[in-house]
Nucleic acid binder design. Structure first.
Lengths: 227, 227
DNA sequence: CATGTTCATTGATCGAAATCAATTCGCGCT
DNA sequence: AGCGCGAATTGATTTCGATCAATGAACATG
């Protein structure tokens, strides 16, 4: 990783608004800031690999981090996609565990890193950190439950429709917005091959969805909700 | 729920060996025992429903609890299956969240219930509880990641083979064992229709797996590992 | 021991999505 | 603005698993 450094003003600002730090009291925030190390990752850089001893907790400041598992013959399955404010690597038992999956920068990214041992030390002294960690991991667990059920219950076009709805600024009226990352990433996140995502988009054309490049226009959100 | 009661000697013993309590110091154990309520559930009883305000944490003492999500038209997708020692309902933010899925007793079950507010109070005083909770939820998260990747990467027979291998007492030699629950439950856990599980078993017959009722015999674990 | 009910298996059909292959498009570069 | 490469689309094919329907096995019940 390039350019390890202490957090500057910008990074502190972003960290303060992150899922984890925003839950903490001022003293715990200070303690975490103290041990934070900022690093920037070039695209495709591996943050950690499945099975490695886990020694770091990470928080995304900008960019996206893809979490995936490998099968014996090298195929990859994405299990999570972390964006700004998200905690990466919390699926690890706080003490002495190993990473459950591989994390890779999907694009150039800025992250904060925390030494896991020191996090644990702080958590043992400051319950608000421990509780905030539990909350963060619980929220992730709930999200993955949703993803798993979504996979098992819905077809590709339905999953895409739900994703779009979840990213509509408001509800009810027509909207346009930009996909936050490239389509192959989105496909992975939804558990689809890129081709399947493409086909899903073209089916949704009949339901008022227009896509050009990363620009998506949704004519009638209600129609999408009904599938 | 029938017969609410304080934990007796048997229940205390089981609780002490549970995933959560076994990680705690004696004082935290005592505090948790203090607020534990034992209940037994008849088969099919609902413990809580998706979307309800979450006010209880549960620990399975015996039996199995099925966690599932519903889609609009009433179809169910199992997302987790909890057995003795497992923590149910931890996918809930500790403060004021709602249950992310529905929990149902898959068979007659004995559980311990903890008032979530009081758990949070204890966690705020006793870091070891907060940290143990984080660990428990982290472990669940890692497990679900594995499940999601498994779903996306492997076919039905492969998933069944992996399940069987994961439940083999030892490795390398032929073994027999009993499925811990009925096959329809196993099918749900693996994200399969019961028919698909049946077919998977019959394919595995050609690879040294014999099934009669709940009894499974595995002739050559190595053959299974190679698919 | 008989009986009814739930659970499991088997067969046949259908639909959804992975895969392979071939263009085409969009985007970053100079 | 045009170039070039990776990303995205489209088409054809195949595989896998859901679903429906019917039979068979296991189990609790009286």
């Amino acid at each position: 990783m390039n350019r390890l450094m202490k957090p500057g003003a910008r990074e502190r600002e972003t960290l303060l608004n992150s899922g984890l730090l925003s839950m903490l009291g001022v003293e715990s925030v200070a303690a975490m800031m103290e041990i934070a190390i900022i690093g920037n990752l070039p695209a495709r850089q591996i943050l950690f690999r499945e099975g490695e001893p886990a020694d770091m907790l990470h928080c995304v400041l900008s960019g996206y981090i893809r979490l995936y598992k490998l099968d014996p013959d090298g195929r990859e399955a994405d299990v999570e996609l972390y964006g700004p404010g998200d905690l990466v690597g919390a699926s690890v038992v706080l003490d002495g565990g190993r990473y459950a999956a591989t994390a890779q920068a999907a694009e150039p990214a800025l992250i904060a890193r925390f030494d896991l041992k020191r996090v644990r030390d702080i958590a043992n002294r400051r319950p608000d950190l421990a509780v905030a960690l539990t909350d963060a991991v619980s929220a992730q667990l709930a999200k993955v439950f949703g993803c798993l059920a979504n996979d098992r219950l819905h077809t590709a076009p339905q999953r895409v429709a739900r994703y779009l709805l979840g990213h509509c600024p408001q509800d009810g009226k027509a909207v346009s917005f930009r996909l936050p990352y490239q389509k192959s990433l989105l496909a992975g996140k939804l558990g689809l091959a890129p081709e399947a995502l493409s086909r899903a988009f073209s089916m949704l054309r009949d339901h008022g969805v227009t896509v050009r490049g990363r620009l998506v226009h949704i004519g009638d959100p209600e129609a999408l909700r009904r599938l």
